[in-house]
């Protein structure tokens, strides 16, 4: 059986996030929101890191069930962490939890439960800042992910397979990414092959295509390439996706096209669902 390994401190797994930082990421995201794509993606990653930290928090603190890398690609390809973790690739989750670049105090209006709105301040840890500058060297980013994943499974041959999540808004500018994408997925632990999920952020007001199981409805070669680059969702993720109201079959792939904010958050939520944590 694959994708069933227990994730524990003794046998951790890893996530590699690839974040497109090309110039076009400064365009506003589709779906009518007035936010830049780069801001939305950075915000979603920061939220996810906070979420993972909470999910792995136990009596004694955050447990290293996962190690996490955030690789940006645009003007350069490298760690997207800022602050104390700047320049580092795979970081144990407990250190991620301890060392954000800063904790922002964000003021927002929330319902007060009595029909009104009330202003409240929350502390929001930030690890990754938005960047939009340069081309889209996706092949290099995928190769970087491949070497991290390859090292990881060499050190943890029995782990729950590493998951690579690629968030992009454009076509690769350094060649056909399919080969680099498949190369990522040739690295395996005894529990299965590394997973690569792709999300395409849209600037258009197109309807997002969520977790498709065929490429016939996809509009062009580029989107079909991204579809072909994406791993099948393992059973437990399919199950979770269905619980979230997402249609999923045996052929469903970890791929979202023309994502808006909601589908981006859902993609990260489903795509980082490893086996149950205790």
């Amino acid at each position: 059986m694959t994708y069933a390994a227990e994730i524990s401190r003794a046998n951790p797994s890893c996530f590699v996030f690839l974040v497109d930082q090309s110039a076009s990421m400064s365009d506003p995201i589709g779906g009518g929101a007035q936010q830049r794509k780069a801001d939305v993606v950075a915000d979603a990653i920061n939220r996810l890191l906070a979420e993972l930290s909470v999910k792995c928090a136990k009596e004694e603190g955050v447990r290293d069930y996962f190690h996490i890398a955030v690789i940006g690609y645009g003007h350069t390809v490298g760690s997207a962490f800022t602050g104390p973790l700047a320049g580092r690739d795979l970081v144990p989750l407990s250190q991620v939890a301890e060392k954000p670049a800063r904790v922002e105090k964000r003021v927002k209006k929330v319902p007060d439960g009595a029909g009104g709105l009330v202003e409240t301040t929350t502390r929001f840890p930030v690890w990754v800042d938005p960047v939009a500058n340069g081309a889209t060297p996706m092949c290099r980013a995928l190769s970087r992910a491949e070497s991290l994943v390859s090292d990881w499974v060499a050190r943890h041959p029995d782990c729950f397979p590493p998951i690579v999540l690629n968030l992009t808004d454009g076509e690769s500018t350094d060649g056909d990414p399919a080969s680099a994408a498949w190369a990522v997925q040739t690295h395996v632990s005894a529990d299965g092959a590394a997973l690569l999920f792709n999300l395409h952020v849209s600037a258009a007001k197109a309807v997002p295509v969520m977790f498709p199981d065929t490429d016939v409805a996809l509009p062009d070669t580029y989107s079909r390439t991204l579809f072909g680059m994406s791993s099948l969702l393992p059973p437990h993720m399919r199950f979770y996706a269905m619980q979230q109201g997402v249609t999923a079959t045996d052929l469903t792939r970890g791929f979202v096209y023309n994502a808006d904010i909601t589908s981006l958050v859902q993609f990260l939520d489903i795509g980082t669902r490893a086996t149950d944590l205790r």
Binding site: V54, K55, C56, A57, K58, E98, P100, V103, L277
Partner: peptide, 9 residues
């Protein structure tokens, strides 16, 4: 340590 509520999940 960040001043956020500490969970035991």
């Amino acid at each position: 340590a960040l001043g956020r509520p500490r969970a035991i999940s």
